[in-house]
Every structure is written in C-alpha cells, then in structure tokens.
Write a protein that binds this DNA or RNA. Sequence first.
DNA 1: GAATAATGTATTGTGCACAACCTAATCGAG
DNA 2: CTCGATTAGGTTGTGCACAATACATTATTC
Lengths: 155, 155
Amino acid sequence: MSNTDDILGLDNQLCFALYAANRAMTARYRPLLTELGLTYPQYLVMLVLWEAAAAADIVRVSGLGERLRLDSGTLTPLLKRLEERGLVRRQRSVEDERVVTVVATADGLAMREQARSIPERLLCSTGVAPDRLMALRDELRSVLAQLESRAPSAR
Amino acid sequence: MSNTDDILGLDNQLCFALYAANRAMTARYRPLLTELGLTYPQYLVMLVLWEAAAAADIVRVSGLGERLRLDSGTLTPLLKRLEERGLVRRQRSVEDERVVTVVATADGLAMREQARSIPERLLCSTGVAPDRLMALRDELRSVLAQLESRAPSAR
DNA sequence: GAATAATGTATTGTGCACAACCTAATCGAG
DNA sequence: CTCGATTAGGTTGTGCACAATACATTATTC
C-alpha cells in the first residue's frame, strides 16, 4: 500500500467514524422517540421550544435554524408536520410579516414530561461510560466550532 | 433550572454535537466531492471498491452494507446511479443468483487518481490539528464499537 | 424430494438535508 | 417618497436513511 493510500485510508476512517457513530447514536434514540411519535430532528426542535417556553423566549424559524444548523428547506416541512400533530403552532409575526414564530402547544408542552426519561434510558442503552461521553462531546464541540469558524461556506 | 433539565440538556448537547459535527464535516467534503460529481455516501462506496480492486476482492451488495452500515434500501438506488454514470458495474452472481456483485469500471478506477488529493485538502480545510482528529477518530470508533456490540438491534 | 425456512436483493413510502430558486415584506440611499 | 437591495420564509427537486414488505433463490428438514 502506497503512502498516499495510507493517508486516504486514515482520512476515510476519521470522517466515516463520525458518519457511522452519528447514525448508530440516532438508531439508539429511535425506539425511545418512537414512543413519542417523534423523529430525532423533531425531538431537537421540541427541546428548543421547551427551553424557550421555560425562559419565555420567542422562537422564530430562523432562530431554530441557527440553533440546529438547519435551513428553511428542512424546517418548514418538519414544522408543518409537528403542527398537524398539534404539538406546535406557527404564526406570522404582526410587527414583521416576514417572520414566523413557533411555539409549543399545550400538548407539545405536555410531551416534555414523557421525554424526561429519555436521556437516562439512552445513556444506559449505550453502555459507554458517562465521563467518556462528556469528553467526546467537548471534543466534538471544539471541532464543530473550528469547522464553523473557518470559511463561512458552511451553507 | 432543575436537575432533570440539566441531565436532559447535557445529553442533548452530546448527541447534538455528534449530529452537528457530522453534518459540518460532510459539508466540508461537499465542494471537493462535487468536483468528482460524487456525494459523500457515493464516495464511501467508491473507496471500498477501490480498496477491493487493489486487493482483488469480490464485493457484493451485502458486503458494502456491512462495511458502511447501510441496507439495500439505501445501496440499491445509490449503486444504480453510479452504474448509470458508468463508474460501477452490478452483476448477478452465477453461482448464487441471489447475490449481486459490484465492481468499479475503468472510469471508476480512473477516478481514484482524482480523489487522491481530497484527504489532504480536507485536512487543510478543517483547520483542526491532525493529532486531535486522530484522537477524535479513535474515541468515535470506540464508542461506535460499544454501540454496535450491545443490543444487536442496530439493524 | 417436497414443504419450509433462511438468505440476498429490490421496492415502496416517509422524513430528513441541502441546493437552487421564488416571493413577499422591510430597509436604505438618494 | 421611490427604487434597489436585503431579509425571512417557502417551494421544488435530488439523494440519502431506514422501516416494511415483497420476491426469487438457495439451504434444510422431514
């Protein structure tokens, strides 16, 4: 195997590890979230809305996008599905009619209680030591910050 | 903020970090792979086929699935697209007609030369120190192994 | 050796991601 | 005030992921 092949293989292993680990982790979430009838991205949106409700913050579509790194092409249909299920309400802002705000409905807020047990159950399911997961999280956040700070070509 | 909120938030940050970092990394790949007209999953398939060609191995669809953790619902259409572009040839095995083997065509093998520069360019693009990336890779592989070893519900 | 099970791939349907483009609303320079 | 630029969100189209199902082929069991 040539030197170039080594480099290519190494690179592949790193980025593939990220790709595979991400899917393995969401696969762990899936059975827990299926109990709530949510997908993982929907769960992330609900987490933001629950947090905002607790802090009395107003969330707009663009705010969700910045927080979750998703654009309107992903969020608009996702939010419509959550709205059809009665978990969320979308509303055009009156001050600025370009803006759409998103809030959890009573049903959406109630779901938070159902979701409380998820983190602990997930942690048990993974079988990985919590301190290692925290170290991994810190490293991922650091790399993410690097990736997002350089070359604003992110989107 | 209650204790439960802390746990939930922490967990959210960990798995979200994996989710966001994965997408940020593939976003870094995108401009490089667009030069080849490949998506990231297609690139992964070609890597496996290039490796197999060098080792004179025979790759079947199920082998690609095990390697990349993808099922036929993902691979079959992906491979058909690669076949339409003339990069790959799919062929029913004669010994066992349930099996479909996949090989890179001459064009597919030639693309390997174009792909050689990708890893280094990607590394430069990220702006993260290589030793940190290697440490992250090792940690991810370890966690992935844990996730896949417990509860064979992975797929 | 025929019924049954297991295997390997394909198909269908849903829901992200993301690029490219569109429209309406607001802002700003003159 | 008006026109051009910007902003916020929506739409369309492509390509994964993945569950569920279907189907043909091979292996097994009696």
